[in-house]
Design a protein around this nucleic acid. Structure first.
Lengths: 200, 200
DNA sequence: CCTTCTCTCTACCATTTGGTAGAGAGGTTT
DNA sequence: AAACCTCTCTACCAAATGGTAGAGAGAAGG
């Protein structure tokens, strides 16, 4: 115990959580500072402006995402098994750090000026994923289709099912631990069905 | 020409667009009024507060959605064909009125207090959709699975692919008319593959 | 003509916002 | 001890926000 977390890092963590939960405009520096037991000017000492703080938060989040992805991808599974492994990973992320996916959602809002920053980070990883899909289609381990579009469909489905908690409630799915497990397994089946190569 | 749109309706339309594009916190009554060529107090005359305006916008949007859905569902198609018809419809909606899906996205944000209002409106329609899926599974026209979860997966996939324009750009999909057509057809294939009953 | 109702306006306000200026405290270096 | 650096603070500020109070214009009805 007694481990000390530098203020800058604490600000970054709290900001990620706040931006990811409430969104950029609804997050005030005063509120953030109060939550940290610090004055707003302390935040502005480390980050010259709210936008700069947001940028740094995006950088940190992107790094986490890429790391997670590359780590899972380097295990070298093939075909649907590899996809499923990543789906599970994203699912776990949605449970443990929902604010991170919330941040992605915030950044990818139409009209966002900060998208470029995120895509610059995840671009190479996206390329890698696309090449993977292409390769596996070539090898007949995945249903043939446009790799970019397939990636988009996968992204939408997985992130949506993993993080659209309010929609789930509206659809009568309780936010229980049990339901989460069912949800993941149903998602996996859905993705498997969508990806399985046609036997012809 | 010369058709007159009552101020109240104009406010409602502009508000839907603004809330759906920029989100609730980033939309100011002053900006909204300016865009309408009117003073803020005119807005507050018709809607007693910003929140009340938002509520009315949600009501209007929900009504549109339900109408669209019921209309398409009443054509009485079966199995995947019915699902595909609705997918096409939602896709058209995303192209013609992207702000409407943006509004849904805004309302379904985690921690939103307004979700209840939306679900109250769409609840019956969601139930109807679920019963449809159940029936079609029973009849062997759709792959068997948990209907609620399947609905969630479908929702995530379709709305995501239809409206996540920034994610698409990040994945190298241009926002061209041509790409939109490809996107819809790939989405359809994806959904078809995910829903097709297993032959066993 | 006067009243009343509908609608939009001007004037104003308290609060919150992101941000600037700079003081002060504590440690390290010279 | 003097100078400096790192960090957090108090004191302010201009701008924007949602909202209140109420005036005025025009049409409708008595």
């Amino acid at each position: 115990m007694g481990n000390f977390v530098p203020t800058r890092q604490r600000v970054l963590d709290a900001a990620l959580s706040a931006f990811g939960t409430d969104g950029y405009p609804a997050t005030s520096l005063d509120a953030l500072a109060a939550q940290l037991g610090v004055r707003k000017q302390t935040i502005l000492y480390y980050f010259p402006s709210k936008q700069a703080l947001f940028d740094s938060v995006i950088d940190a989040a992107a790094q986490d995402l890429v790391e997670l992805f590359e780590q899972e991808a380097s295990r070298g599974l093939a075909g649907i098994d590899q996809v499923e492994a990543i789906v599970r990973r994203i699912f776990r992320l949605a449970v443990n750090r929902p604010e991170l996916l919330g941040l992605i959602r915030e950044v990818t809002r139409p009209g966002s000026i900060t998208v470029g920053r995120l895509s610059a980070h995840v671009g190479p990883t996206v390329d890698r994923a696309r090449r993977f899909l292409e390769r596996e289609m070539e090898a007949g381990r995945l249903r043939r289709s446009d790799p970019s579009m397939l990636l988009l469909s996968l992204y939408s489905t997985v992130v949506g099912v993993a993080s659209e908690l309010e929609v789930q409630r509206a659809m009568g799915i309780p936010p229980s631990r049990r339901a989460t497990v069912v949800r993941r397994s149903e998602l996996t089946r859905f993705v498997r069905a969508a990806l399985a190569p046609t036997d012809t």
